[in-house]
């Protein structure tokens, strides 16, 4: 860990201007990923600006409907917030599928989306990594890439975004409120993260000095037909190989609207809105789900160790849609194992 100066910000404006003055500074809220990375010298901010004293730790209904999640509300407090549990159960489920209770007590809503990839090579200075050191190459491309991306990849990077919460936020169509050097703005959650392209060192579209102040959940709630399915190499406390967040609006057996976001498969929470159109007005059957899954994964590329994710993601989508459509009642699968 590098030596750094610690600054405690008193309000958002001060925080933004403090960071703007320090070209390589970082905000810290929960610290769960920043300090993790600093201990490995992956992040080396000379200035760390502690924003925990900012007044951004509330969850409040928005006047026009929807819910505002303060950036400094912890993941745990968000997941277990009564309004979130009742109206946005998908978000609760996704958050609770991630990390550990201790980490969720530290990690914040503003920080969670900004956590960095868990790519082994990104974490290890002994190996080249374009995300860590642009231009050095991607070791995962031909390396051990079991946990890596199959969608939206580039020859420069096949890292994934590791968050569970963000997958639900992407499905729900959240919006992100940002305070920056040039004032405040709001962006779609879809536009927060980016694909690696030829600049994989950039995880998202934030400018230096930008502070996420809150995340807004839309008026549309999806209270019942939701599912978050997370597949991982152990039952808890592991990152997703594939995760699926599903929110359905149903009329009887008919799908009025489907939202399906994938985690663990891309550099950002993955969603294919065009394919979702395919499900509109259709009955909730395995055939439709399979066809949808095929469409979503049609552009997927496997890199060897992670090629199984293409098939696995399809199966996970079908299962999650089935579960959501059945309002969490699991039905026997018709599909044979082999």
């Amino acid at each position: 860990m590098n030596s750094f100066s610690y600054i405690r910000a008193a309000d958002p404006a001060e925080a933004v201007s403090q960071l703007a003055q320090q070209s390589n500074g970082k905000f810290v809220a929960g610290g769960t990923n920043l300090f993790d990375l600093m201990k490995e010298n992956i992040e080396q901010p000379p200035y760390v600006i502690d924003i925990n004293r900012l007044d951004l730790a509330r969850i409040e209904p928005l006047p026009q409907g929807g819910l505002r999640l303060g950036a400094l509300v912890t993941n745990a407090d968000t997941a277990w917030n009564e309004l979130v549990e009742q109206n946005y159960p998908l978000l609760s489920k996704a958050i609770l599928a991630g990390a550990s209770p201790q980490l969720r007590n530290m990690a914040t809503n503003g920080g969670n989306p900004l956590q960095r990839t868990r790519c082994y090579y990104f974490y290890d200075h002994a190996t080249p990594c374009n995300k860590r050191e642009p231009g050095t190459g991607c070791s995962a491309l031909n390396g051990f890439n079991r946990i890596h991306a199959i969608l939206g990849t580039s020859e420069h990077c096949i890292a994934t975004h590791p968050s569970d919460m963000c997958v639900a936020l992407r499905a729900l169509g959240a919006r992100v409120n940002i305070k920056g050097v040039n004032g405040e703005r709001t962006i779609d959650f879809a536009d927060l993260h980016r694909l690696p392209g030829d600049a994989p060192h950039l995880d998202n579209n934030l400018e230096h000095g930008d502070l996420i102040t809150s995340i807004d959940l839309p008026e549309k709630q999806f209270k019942t037909n939701v599912a978050y399915l997370k597949l991982r190499d152990r039952q808890s406390y592991a990152f997703a190989l594939v995760s699926v967040a599903v929110a359905l609006e149903m009329n009887g057996d008919q799908i009025l609207e489907a939202r399906v976001a994938l985690g663990g498969v891309a550099h950002k929470p993955w969603r294919d809105e065009a394919a979702e159109e395919q499900l509109k007005g259709q009955p909730a059957t395995a055939d439709h789900f399979k066809a949808f899954a095929d469409t979503v994964l049609s552009g997927a590329i496997g890199y060897g160790h992670n090629t199984f994710k293409i098939e696995l993601a399809k199966r996970a989508i079908v299962r999650a849609l089935t579960t959501a459509a059945a309002q969490s009642v699991e039905e026997p699968s018709s599909q044979p194992l082999v």
Binding site: T127, S139, G143, I147, A238
Partner: peptide, 25 residues
């Protein structure tokens, strides 16, 4: 313990990626 033969190095050298059983398992 996953060895990357290109680097001759165990790559999942952490308790996040070297999975041992947790309570839920």
């Amino acid at each position: 313990s996953v060895l990357d033969n290109e680097f001759g190095r165990f790559m999942n050298h952490s308790l996040a990626e070297y999975h041992v059983a947790v309570n839920k398992d």
